[in-house]
Design a protein around this nucleic acid. Sequence first.
DNA 1: GCTTGACTTCGAGTGCACTCGAAGGGGAAG
DNA 2: CTTCCCCTTCGAGTGCACTCGAAGTCAAGC
Lengths: 124, 124
Amino acid sequence: MTSGLTVGEAAAKVGLSAHTLRWYEQEGLVAPVNRDGAGRRRYDSGDLNWLVLLTRLRTTGMSVRDMRRYAELARRGPHTVAERRRLFEEHKARVLERIADLQRDLEAINVKIEIYRQMEQEQQ
Amino acid sequence: MTSGLTVGEAAAKVGLSAHTLRWYEQEGLVAPVNRDGAGRRRYDSGDLNWLVLLTRLRTTGMSVRDMRRYAELARRGPHTVAERRRLFEEHKARVLERIADLQRDLEAINVKIEIYRQMEQEQQ
DNA sequence: GCTTGACTTCGAGTGCACTCGAAGGGGAAG
DNA sequence: CTTCCCCTTCGAGTGCACTCGAAGTCAAGC
């Protein structure tokens, strides 16, 4: 009745490698995962949710350093909630800015595509 | 009556370092820039426009490898216009996907912020 | 004439986030 | 019993895009 996923299974589920999962733990991005009788990691749904959240932070450009800071706050308990919120709001601002930049640059790309389209017309 | 900007000036204008500008040229991202009598680079408005375009491609996540491919096409002349357009449209698709990903992940971040906000309320 | 900034080649260093492999060992499933 | 996955520590390697520094030269501006 051992419950929870092994490293390999958890890795497959969240789209990271087993190597990387252990590395995340070692780097303090993930709190020590519970072990089964044989000392093997067992990831429960809480661990998985945490990993999913981390991957979202990663793909939105948060550095490992900042993720570690966040993980440390979370481990320190509920009295760090306000600071965690601030951290997230700063990150949110960066993401919004990034989106705005992308949309602005996309405009230039669209203009280029239009120009090329016209040149293709004229070449015929 | 030498016209055009020096490396340092051009670098300042486009937000890259002089080192990087020379490196871009060496890597084939930029066609050889015209020189003045003393052999120094002189960037004209065409060069600057090109550099600005490159920085947009960079900030939208295009790799140096792809920028080089694009630069080579541009150097090869007008008969590569269709291919350049395809390259841009593929890039555009990637950028749109990236924006969508960011917006999706931003939702999760917003949810987190809301949760933290409520926890802060309850702590009082 | 000195300072400043330009030129060249070249290789090495940086920062990030993995990513891999070695070496040696343990337990569970077919 | 063999295979497979897990465990550990450790250091080295990878890929990207710069980034820096050395070493030596040259020319324009003050």
